[in-house]
Computed example of a mutant assay.
Amino acid sequence: MMLTIVNCSKDSDSEPSIEVQNPLANPENGPAAGNPDGDSPIPAEAGTEDVTNPDTIVGDGTPESCTCDAVVDAVAKGGKITFDCGPDPITIIMDKPAKVVNNANEEVIIDGGGRVTLSGNGTTRILYMNTCDPDQVWTTDHCQNQEYPRLTVQNITFADGNSIRETEYDGGGAIWVRGGRFKAVNCRFFNNICASTGPDVGGGAIRVFSQYNNLPVYIVNSTFGGQDGYGNSGSNGGAISSIGVSWTIINSLFSHNKAIGNGGNPAESGSPGGGSGGAIYNDGNTMTLTLLGSSITQNEVNAYGSSLFFVSNDHSGNIKIDHSTITNNIGGSWYPVYPSISMHSDTPIEVTNSVIE
């Protein structure tokens, strides 16, 4: 099969986008989604959503019909979104992020069928949801804690996202989320980047804030990086980053991601700050990190936590690791209990059936 690359339509006066014809973005190539050794059970609410009867089908059976404008329009409408782009795998080049409209639909489910890559082409973030952004419509007087929208991405690849130009809503090279609920199932994240320095910016692939009732973000059977040349990077949290958010990560793989800032948080004098959490960066107060059936290996930092950075400011958070492997992560310091994990020494951490070295 061949790979089809489709550019987003642009105004004639606009500069043309640069095509990133990168084999890493081909759904037939690159590391598969998920940890091949992961076999932890998946709760029903963490599994894939049913898209048997989609609300929107992007495309009419031809690759030319699967443009990023079509993706942007579909996400704005919400509901169940699938793709019909022809028989071959396809990479859709985005020149702007698809944005969730908060009052359009309670559910936004984007299912690539294992054949679709959304690429930021090295120039733009790919997907954005923010219940507290008035431009996307305020729907409650408690936008920081509302149940909807619920955003699910599944069976899809996000590649070459870039949020470096973002200022107000920084971080999250591929996906930025605040409010409602978010989960990613059977997804791959390759070569996404966010700002390279700063103490409070991060998430080369994903940045999340304020989930409803402090319920967890689910990351299930997904790959961030996967091998050399595929990794994501940002100032903190080479793969994922959050403040005050809980995560449950199941049967997933994090490798070759990098936290490339330096100076830590708060930034050391004379430094720009950042460089913590090679794979995962969790900051805030009461929050949990649950890692099940997952592998975190060969991630890198300049400051702290070459695999995980987990700092509960009020010392109320906790970590659970089961049937997971955390090995061969590179750099950093401040590992009071386990190698490559930076956390307060009094943070409760439960480790079972796992290797951390």
Rank of each mutant, 00 (worst) to 15 (best):
M2T: 11
I5N: 03
N7Q: 15
S12G: 02
S12K: 06
D13S: 14
V20S: 12
A25P: 02
E28F: 06
E28W: 05
N29V: 00
P31I: 03
G34P: 04
G38Y: 08
S40H: 15
P41N: 11
I42M: 12
A46N: 10
T48N: 06
D50F: 06
P54L: 10
T62Y: 00
C68H: 09
V71M: 10
D73V: 03
K77W: 00
G79W: 04
C85R: 00
D88E: 14
D95Y: 02
D95N: 12
K96M: 08
P97Q: 11
N103D: 15
N105T: 03
I110V: 09
T117Q: 00
L118K: 03
G120V: 07
D133A: 06
D141V: 04
Q146E: 15
E147V: 10
Q154P: 09
A159M: 00
S163I: 08
R165C: 14
E166C: 07
Y169R: 14
D170T: 03
A174D: 02
V177T: 12
G180E: 01
R181N: 13
F182M: 12
K183C: 09
K183I: 08
V185D: 00
C187G: 08
R188C: 02
N191K: 14
I193C: 09
A195W: 02
G203R: 00
L215S: 15
L215P: 12
Y218M: 10
S222C: 08
F224H: 02
G226S: 07
N232F: 07
N232C: 13
A239I: 03
I240M: 11
S246I: 06
W247I: 05
I250Y: 09
K258V: 11
S271R: 10
G277N: 08
A279E: 09
I280D: 04
Y281H: 12
T286D: 14
M287P: 09
L289K: 10
L291T: 10
L292M: 13
S294Y: 06
S295E: 11
I296E: 08
E300C: 02
N302W: 07
N313A: 12
D314L: 12
H315N: 13
H315A: 13
H315S: 13
S324C: 03
T327P: 05
T327N: 11
N329P: 12
S333Y: 05
Y338L: 08
S342T: 15
M343C: 11
S345R: 01
V351P: 07
T352K: 15
S354N: 07
I356K: 02
E357I: 09
E357G: 13
